[in-house]
Amino acid sequence: MAEHLLEVSNLKKYFPTKDGILYAVDDVSFAVDKGETLGLVGESGCGKSTTGRAILRLHEPTAGTVLFKGDDIVRYSKKQLKEIRKDMQIVFQDPYSSLNPRMDVRHLIEVSLEINGVHDANERLERVKEVMDVVGLEQRLLNSYPHELDGGRRQRVGIARALILNPSFIVMDEPVSALDVCIQAQILNLLMKLQEKRGYAYLFISHNLSVVKHISDRIAVMYLGKIVEMSTYDELFRNPLHPYTKALLASIPIPKLNRKRDKLILSGDVPSPINPPPGCRFRGRCPYAKQICGEAEPVLRKVGDTQVACHLYD
């Protein structure tokens, strides 16, 4: 079997709280190949951001392995980790709070070069200018501060910071969610062009299914810390299997009139990830729940080309 660029196996991240253990990410496995985008979708609190961060060890995983280029980085020392992070980067959701307001654009972008031993200021400046070109930031903005930039340009700075070390894998944590649709479209086009040119692999985290479908090759759907379905982008939309995926797809407001759609509107809210219900975690909101759903936890299994965790497909 060919080696994947990133292979996550049985990843768990639990947080202790005063009310009990919060199972943010609970036994999640997937792989991402070079030049590929895996979309990770789900609602607030389903564990998608925590997954992204645990992979980079911004949160220490509770259990599981993260093989990056064949090596388990969960066991890396701090020094090894610093080295490997040049190759694994992250773009954060909110370009308003993820940039230091007291650094100008040049400093924001070059700081990671500095940390990683590029001591020649001229070389750094050249590389900053180069990456600004790549992400479509005008050179005149070199000495601007974040508050002088609009949201789209700020997010371009965030992307430039991630690209400057030329990584092979980037976690995109809701990179367009804080942007207006027109700016969002500009950034999506940029990310796709960059991937085509440079072969980056993305883990693209978002709650917006239209955006995820647009950018992803494969999509994983998360619910309460678990992946409930994983498939190629077209198969997932054409033939969703898990009832939760079906409901998610049916909930997307589509800017067209007179469409005939099955309206599957879920009742209730997502339960708390602290002490989740036994059996299937979606059971309480699932219109097809059977007795077995309360007894045994469904595991991901292959149905056609899709992987799904649901007792309907036993």
């Binding site: 609602e43 607030s44 709650h207 049916a250 997307i252 407001p253 309206k263 509107i265």
Partner: peptide, 11 residues
Amino acid sequence: LDVTIQAQVLN
């Protein structure tokens, strides 16, 4: 709001 909740509220 999240999409499934948005659908409830719009409904």
